[in-house]
Design a protein around this nucleic acid. Structure first.
Lengths: 178, 178
DNA sequence: CCTTGTTGTTATCGACTGATAACTTCGTCT
DNA sequence: AGACGAAGTTATCAGTCGATAACAACAAGG
């Protein structure tokens, strides 16, 4: 239990982590700021004061997971600069289901102009980065992104990650990917 | 303008079509039943009475688009029983952006048990159907589903379909798919 | 023509939810 | 010590939103 006071920056970090979990579970519109507050162990109004608005907090969560994915890709490329290597690193991200699913929720919430603009930009960044790090052909990178989207959708449906819902087609898909 | 009275079944059909559009634009939690009502030209309480609950209406929308996709696949397979043929039919579905995006919103809303169960079942059906219609290998079908998810996510981000947001990476992805 | 069942509406509730304001508590520096 | 700034809370509002209930209008059969 965190009893001590933290600086605004430190507390914002805790709130942001809670936001990633909560938004990952229930999406932008489906998540209440109060849920995030309880997860972070602070009051709901304080969450708002730290981030200004629910939307800005969501955008911060999108940036956080995008950064995280890009970092993981860079790390993987240092070991071996191939799409297969990046793919492995993506697989290792799956256990933290909420992480990837936050991005999916961002895609889904693209009707909101600010969110749409942000997720289009970050998706483009990731796509570009995958190409730059590996030097793969556009076709290969596209295939890579497609597989990533399939895995992300499966994570959202809870057939991968921790406590997966057992599903006959899911195991078939996963085996044919490896 | 529909002035005449319709049977409950006919009106339900109109409401359901409106629901597909509205849910496709803003997702489950993000769509208000009143929006759907206005789109369908009826009052909000009537929408509720026709479908019982917002959730049931959403589930009906998910079933509707899944049926539509499966029909399109079957029709495509009658012409030519290959994944490429099904892929073309999927591409023809993209102009009706909301159609595919409703499914994505269903995946995203899988935290709701009823919705999760439904979309897992329908996704599994589509996957199985693609395999049965074409006789392709599991690996090929998986690749096909992955590409479908990429296209669906791009539709959600509004870089495909009508009035696409112009986006450098989107054109690159699309050209490398064809 | 009038009764009856179905279609559809208006009125309204009750719970929720993001955001604001005002207040309080803690740490730190002099 | 005490005062000042930053951290965090409680109280509360104003607007929403799904759902219920009660009523109204229309069509068809007798």
């Amino acid at each position: 239990m965190t009893k001590t006071r933290l600086t605004a920056a430190e507390r914002s970090e805790e709130v942001l982590q809670a936001a990633v979990v909560a938004f990952g579970a229930n999406g932008y519109a489906g998540t209440k700021t109060d849920e995030i507050a309880r997860l972070a162990g602070v009051s709901q109004p304080y969450v708002i004061r730290l981030f200004g608005t629910k939307q800005q907090l969501f955008l911060a969560a999108v940036h956080r997971v995008s950064d995280r994915i890009e970092d993981e890709f860079r790390r993987a490329a240092e070991r071996e600069a191939t799409l297969a290597s990046l793919g492995e690193s993506y697989n290792e991200l799956i256990p933290e289901r909420e992480l990837l699913v936050v991005l999916l929720h961002g895609f889904a919430a693209s009707a909101d102009p600010a969110i749409g603009e942000t997720v289009r930009a970050r998706f483009g960044d990731i796509h570009k980065l995958a190409g730059q790090l590996t030097g793969a052909t556009p076709e290969e990178v596209t295939q890579f992104m497609a597989t990533g989207m399939l895995l992300t959708v499966m994570a959202a449906m809870q057939v991968t990650g921790p406590n997966p819902v057992s599903c006959h087609w899911a195991t078939e898909l996963l085996t044919s990917l490896s």
